[in-house]
């Protein structure tokens, strides 16, 4: 079975799977010196990491989106340097008009033609419904783990689910959890929300570092975490119009920072933050990531919770700078 790799949370895994292909959402490690990808000056480390991962990750085709300008343009570097088929899906940044959602739906249909060209089969409504139900069921199981797993486990399970692109992976995820259940959830530690740019695959040390200092992440507000999860689907709606259901679950609910306007991001964050009893925010963005960087000051002005912001690059372990920022957050909240 051919594997289609992508990074953006607005690519529905179900859609690829329904075509008989394997979807795999990449969470990249740092590009480092793996590959020369133009000047590092001005280039977002996460965008570089994605490009590097697309070269090295086992996959038969690559799907880019337009949600990030550096990624949209980085796609051209990929096209020039790989023989793999590459597809660019335009995810509208506007969302208030029905035309935007309709255009996203049309883009999914265009993606379908690309998937067929790879050897996939355009799904019937009943086939698509079946796949949607399977993914939605698995995603519900995944979300349920949040209340019993550690914050790090839960975020890593999300990444694992996205990468596997198969609802059956919940069996493995459950096994991993059962084999190493958290001894005791750190209930007494200070609840903190992580918010901002997506995490690279080696960035989960942040969770442990914060716990050692007396805090714990109760909300992973990154698109590699909970922020990037599509909305749960209505079973009746799945049967009636599965493609529209997919559009609504992804385009209709993921409140990413790139959207215009992006007030939904703050609505989502307030709702989740209150629900989880958040007391402070660790806001993290990559250097040269305009989309998240520009939210840092706005978040501070908007939030009634204290915010510590952390600018990060390609570091693969805890740096003195990061440690100092985490310490200051916890001390502020104690």
């Amino acid at each position: 079975m051919k594997t289609v790799i992508y990074e953006c949370p607005f690519i529905p895994a179900e859609w690829i799977a329904a075509h008989g292909l394997r979807p795999s959402r990449v969470q990249p490690p740092a590009a480092g010196a793996i590959l020369s990808l133009g000047s590092e000056d001005g280039t977002c480390p996460y965008a570089r990491a994605c490009l590097a991962a697309f070269f090295h990750y086992p996959g038969d085709a690559i799907v880019y989106t337009t949600t990030c300008d550096q990624m949209r343009r980085g796609c051209e570097v990929t096209i020039a340097q790989t023989a793999k088929p590459v597809f660019v899906l335009h995810v509208p940044k506007t969302w208030e008009q029905p035309e935007a959602s309709a255009f996203y739906r049309e883009e999914l249909l265009r993606l379908s033609r690309f998937l067929v060209s790879l050897g996939g089969h355009a799904p019937s409504n009943s086939k698509l419904s079946e796949v949607l139900l399977a993914f939605d069921g698995a995603r519900r199981q995944l979300v349920e783990l949040r209340s019993v797993a550690t914050a790090r486990q839960f975020s890593e399970f999300i990444a694992r689910f996205n990468q596997a692109g198969d609802p059956g992976c919940m069996v493995d995820i459950r096994k991993v959890f059962d084999a190493a259940p958290p001894a005791a959830l750190a209930r007494k530690k200070i609840p903190v929300a992580l918010f901002g740019s997506p995490l690279m695959s080696h960035h989960y040390f942040l969770f442990d570092s914060l716990e050692k200092l007396g805090g714990r992440i109760v909300l992973d507000g990154t698109t590699t975490g909970e922020l990037g999860l599509p909305g749960l689907m209505d079973r009746q709606a799945i049967r009636e119009d599965p493609l529209q259901c997919l559009v609504n679950a992804y385009f209709g609910t993921i409140p990413d920072a790139f959207r215009r306007p992006n007030d939904q991001l703050y609505t989502w964050f307030r709702e989740k933050g209150l629900e989880r009893g958040v007391r402070g925010i660790l806001f993290r963005h990559y250097v040269w990531c305009d989309t998240w960087h520009s939210e840092a000051q706005r978040l501070k002005e908007w939030s009634s919770w204290p915010v510590v912001s952390l600018e990060t690059g390609e570091e693969t372990q805890l740096t003195g700078h990061t440690l100092a920022r985490l310490q200051s957050l916890v001390e502020m909240l104690q």
Partner: peptide, 20 residues
Amino acid sequence: VCSVGATCDDFSCIAQRLNG
């Protein structure tokens, strides 16, 4: 009025800041 979509992130973000 501001065009967004396939535009540079800088401008889109600055315009969003203005909107905010």
